[in-house]
Computed example of a mutant assay.
Amino acid sequence: MYCLQWLIPVLLMPKPLNPAFIYNHAMFIILYLTGFFLVRKPCTICSLVFLAAVFLICYNCVGNCILWHCTEDECQGADCDIG
């Protein structure tokens, strides 16, 4: 699980507050992850753990998804405190 030390900080990176930079941030993250998987070739377990974490974070749509921006319409219940 040594390779997870390079993947976990990606989940903790803050998204930009300016909506104009969300696309650039998502492209940077996608390019970083693509380069990481091509160069470092992490083990299967680390890859599955990381992809499961990304899926769960983005599926909940709490506003922390690193790949896209969740709007207020997509938020459900008291889990979403945007604004």
Rank of each mutant, 00 (worst) to 15 (best):
M1T: 12
M1Q: 10
Y2V: 14
Y2H: 13
L4I: 11
L4R: 11
Q5N: 11
Q5R: 12
W6C: 09
W6R: 05
L7Y: 07
L7Q: 08
L7M: 15
I8R: 13
P9E: 04
V10M: 13
V10E: 11
L11K: 04
K15T: 08
K15G: 10
K15V: 03
K15H: 07
N18Y: 08
N18C: 08
P19G: 06
P19Y: 10
A20T: 07
F21T: 01
F21H: 10
F21V: 00
F21K: 07
I22M: 13
I22T: 15
Y23Q: 13
Y23C: 06
Y23W: 08
N24K: 10
N24V: 05
H25G: 03
A26E: 11
M27E: 14
M27G: 01
M27A: 12
F28E: 09
F28N: 09
I29F: 07
I30C: 04
I30N: 11
L31G: 04
L31Q: 13
Y32T: 10
Y32F: 15
L33A: 03
L33W: 04
L33H: 04
L33R: 01
T34W: 08
T34E: 06
G35V: 03
G35W: 07
F37V: 05
F37R: 02
L38G: 01
V39T: 11
V39P: 00
V39E: 07
R40D: 10
R40Q: 15
K41G: 03
C43Q: 08
T44A: 11
I45P: 01
I45N: 09
C46K: 05
S47A: 14
L48T: 13
L48K: 14
V49C: 13
V49R: 10
V49S: 11
V49I: 15
V49A: 14
V49F: 12
F50L: 05
F50V: 05
F50I: 06
L51I: 12
L51Y: 14
L51R: 08
A52W: 05
V54L: 14
V54Y: 02
V54C: 11
F55P: 00
F55I: 02
L56F: 14
L56W: 12
L56K: 07
I57K: 08
I57G: 00
C58P: 03
N60D: 06
N60M: 11
V62S: 08
V62R: 07
V62Y: 03
G63K: 04
G63S: 04
G63N: 05
N64V: 01
C65W: 04
C65F: 05
I66R: 09
L67F: 15
W68E: 02
H69N: 11
C70L: 00
C70V: 04
C70N: 11
C70M: 01
T71H: 04
E72W: 00
E72R: 06
E72Y: 00
E72D: 04
E72V: 06
D73H: 01
D73E: 12
C75Y: 01
Q76C: 00
Q76E: 06
G77R: 07
G77I: 05
G77T: 05
A78P: 01
A78V: 03
D79E: 06
D79K: 06
C80R: 06
D81C: 00
D81P: 00
I82C: 09
I82P: 00
